[in-house]
Amino acid sequence: MVRSLRARRRRRRLRSVALIGIDGSGKTTQAHQLADALVAAGRPATYHRNAGGRRWLGRIAQRLGRPDAQRLVGRDGLLAVESVLRWLAIALALISCLVTGRTAVMDRYSACQYASIRAHGGHRWERLARAGYRVFPQPQVTFLLSLDPAEAYRRIERRGTDHETLGWLTAADTAYRALPEYPTFILVDAGRPADEVSKQIRHHLADWFGADEAAAGLPLTTGERENQPESLKSA
């Protein structure tokens, strides 16, 4: 009975997976690796970076002599631009995968926008954002890459391509954990080495990867198991 249930899950198409979390948690690296692993396992997939343009606006702000994007367009302006650009990116990603039949591996999704709005203190914008993003289906699996904000700050400083304050990272981490969707997220310990994080993610997707990949996954911790959706706990 259990085997037949797993077989049915493996036959079901994995339409979309989202990786979310604070800056520096490794979303982009893990999303790229997951897309590559799915392709290698015979399940065509495409990586999609659903950015909100905050880094891009920040670079423009610095060129114009402003310290960051918020100082350039204001908090409300930043949240409006970010919400629209991320909405467009997600829409294009979903349309692309609907047409091609490939799995959409989402580097950021709607929850990232809700968390950004909360971290910026623009709570009145969240209702508008949710109304606009409601047209998008929820990913079959959403991974929240959990990382201590202080470590995320150190990683960002080491890569040297952008800058975030520790205060912002802490606020964003708190915002993710306060979202009503939080109980549906699968928590992944992003503080481990990148290859171990990848194994954690593949373990949770074992029904789509098959027995060999499942065996390669790391054992789940008690906390990770408690945060699994019911559909995956029996796997």
Rank of each mutant, 00 (worst) to 15 (best):
S25I: 01
A51T: 15
P149A: 08
A214E: 03
L64R: 03
T46K: 11
T29F: 08
R15C: 07
G26L: 09
I22W: 05
G223D: 15
G42N: 05
R102L: 10
G24M: 03
C112R: 04
G26A: 07
Y109A: 12
A235D: 11
R159I: 03
S198H: 07
Y109R: 13
D107Q: 02
S83G: 08
H203K: 10
A7G: 13
E230Y: 09
Y133I: 14
C112L: 01
L5K: 07
L187G: 07
S110H: 12
G42S: 01
V197K: 00
A211T: 05
R15V: 11
W56M: 15
G101K: 06
R63H: 01
P219A: 06
M1W: 08
E82T: 02
S83Q: 01
R108H: 04
H123C: 11
V197P: 00
T221H: 00
L19K: 10
L187I: 10
R225Q: 14
D148A: 12
I201D: 09
T142M: 04
D173R: 03
E151C: 07
V99W: 11
R43D: 07
V17N: 08
P183T: 12
R108I: 04
L128G: 11
R71W: 02
P44K: 06
L144G: 04
A214T: 00
D189L: 06
P180H: 09
S110Y: 14
E226F: 09
L92E: 09
G132N: 04
A37N: 11
S4C: 03
L57S: 01
R75V: 13
D36A: 15
A45R: 00
R86W: 03
P193L: 02
I20K: 03
G121I: 05
Q140M: 13
D76R: 02
R6N: 15
K27N: 03
A172L: 14
T142V: 04
R59C: 05
R118G: 12
Q228L: 15
E224P: 11
I90Q: 09
A150P: 04
E151T: 10
A119Y: 11
E157C: 04
V141S: 03
H123A: 14
F143A: 05
A80E: 02
P219I: 05
H120R: 11
F143L: 06
R71G: 04
T165P: 03
H32D: 08
A111C: 13
